[in-house]
Simulated scan of single mutants.
Amino acid sequence: MPTKKPSVDFEQSLSELEALVQQMEQGELSLEESLKAFERGIGLTRHCQERLSAAEQQVQTLMEQQGEMRLQPLDDTESEGE
């Protein structure tokens, strides 16, 4: 079954979210505009989280298929030699 392509990609959602945050931080929006922006921001945040989760699952699946399933910390600065 083919996967449905998202209507808005991650980068677009993140960019729109950043723009909304900037607008809200400036404090020039009315209460109604702020509430609408906040509501839109929540939706964008959820969309970004879902896309990141899907990407993580895809990477994990690919690693399992290659027989390379091993978890490694993102920050290698905590090695035994320190």
Rank of each mutant, 00 (worst) to 15 (best):
P6D: 07
P6Y: 13
S7G: 03
S7A: 10
V8W: 01
D9M: 10
D9S: 12
F10N: 04
F10H: 13
F10K: 10
F10E: 08
E11W: 11
Q12A: 13
Q12I: 15
Q12K: 02
L14D: 10
L14P: 01
E16C: 05
E16D: 11
L17S: 12
E18W: 00
E18D: 11
A19L: 04
A19C: 02
L20S: 13
V21Q: 00
V21F: 06
Q22I: 15
M24K: 10
M24E: 06
E25C: 07
E25T: 04
E25K: 12
E25A: 10
Q26F: 09
Q26M: 13
Q26L: 13
Q26K: 14
G27S: 13
E28K: 15
L29T: 04
L29R: 03
L29W: 06
S30E: 06
L31V: 08
E32Y: 00
S34Y: 13
S34L: 05
L35R: 12
K36Y: 02
K36C: 01
K36L: 00
A37T: 06
E39M: 02
R40N: 11
G41W: 02
G41V: 03
I42L: 05
I42Q: 00
G43R: 02
G43W: 04
L44G: 02
L44E: 00
L44V: 04
Q49S: 08
E50R: 15
E50A: 15
E50N: 13
E50V: 15
R51Y: 05
R51T: 07
R51E: 09
